[in-house]
């Protein structure tokens, strides 16, 4: 089981850039209490690419994403087995603390969730909690992050205003900027556009494309068109299992598994 999916991954890409993986997941199972939510997931997620995760709601795609930075452990009854290697080290290693993992693996959430603080303080939040206090450094980080999230021009004159005054789409890009501020290697995105209007969605999608140069991005989406538009690789989850994982073009044009085909052709989900 382990090898088949990995092999599938290797087969489809001749691109040398993709040889490095940020995550190597082997035999991952996850339970909420007694209910198993993920079954024996094996996959390698490549570096500096956009990996989309699709599947009907309740298929475990969000759970899987939140396992990658161990946010899933916010639910106290969660149990896991198997390994997830982030750049070679197991993230479940008891010696590794979650805070350190999360400084390298950032996250953008379904609903824009800026803090009820100024735009500046929102961006400076991450650096500050990691001990960066100098105003000069923070100023630089704030500008760079907001530019990185393509929202600098819109907010540069009102950095001291409350972030709640921004529109939904702007708030979500602010949240992406906030995530960029600590310069993680990976950005996990949990349906980042599901609460946005089409124009804001487009802007966020463009941004995601740009970010790919410096970041490995894993994006959960319920929207298959979005996955097809933005991602390099796509994984299809169903009932807690990874059904298929391959190049986005391949998966959508020539799926190997019948269930994948049923889903992308809209027969269920």
């Amino acid at each position: 089981m382990n090898t088949t999916h990995v092999l599938k991954t290797e087969q489809v890409k001749p691109n040398p850039k993709e040889e490095k993986n940020v995550f190597e997941i082997a035999g991952l199972n996850l339970w909420y209490g007694n209910d198993q939510a993920l079954y024996d997931i094996n996959m390698n997620i490549p570096e500096n690419q956009i990996t989309a995760i699709i599947g009907p709601s309740g298929c475990g795609k969000s759970t899987f994403l939140k396992t990658l930075n161990r946010m899933v452990e916010m639910v106290p009854t969660v149990k896991t087995s198997g390994t997830i290697k982030y750049k070679g080290t197991n993230i479940f290693d008891p010696k590794r603390n979650v805070e350190d993992l999360r400084t390298h693996v950032g996250m953008v959430f379904q609903k824009p969730n800026p803090f009820p603080k100024s735009i500046y303080d929102n961006i400076a939040y991450g650096p500050r909690i990691h001990g960066i206090k100098k105003k000069k450094d923070l100023d630089e980080i704030v500008e760079k992050s907001l530019r990185g999230a393509a929202i600098w021009d819109e907010v540069k004159d009102r950095l001291d205003e409350n972030a709640y005054g921004l529109s939904g789409g702007q708030q979500q890009r602010l949240c992406i900027a906030r995530c960029l501020a600590i310069e993680p290697d990976v950005i996990l995105m949990d349906e980042p556009t599901s609460a946005l209007d089409p124009i804001s969605t487009l802007k966020v999608e463009e941004l995601v494309q740009e970010l790919k140069e410096n970041y490995s991005i894993i994006i959960v989406t319920h929207n298959m068109q979005q996955a097809a538009r933005v991602s390099d690789k796509t994984a299809f989850f169903l009932n807690g299992e990874l059904v298929e994982f391959s190049d986005t073009n391949t998966l959508f044009s020539n799926p190997e598994d019948q269930r994948t085909e049923d889903y992308i052709t809209g027969r269920f989900g």
Partner: peptide, 8 residues
């Protein structure tokens, strides 16, 4: 110009 992870 400023490596945040380095600072961290």
């Amino acid at each position: 110009p400023l490596d945040v992870q380095e600072k961290i």
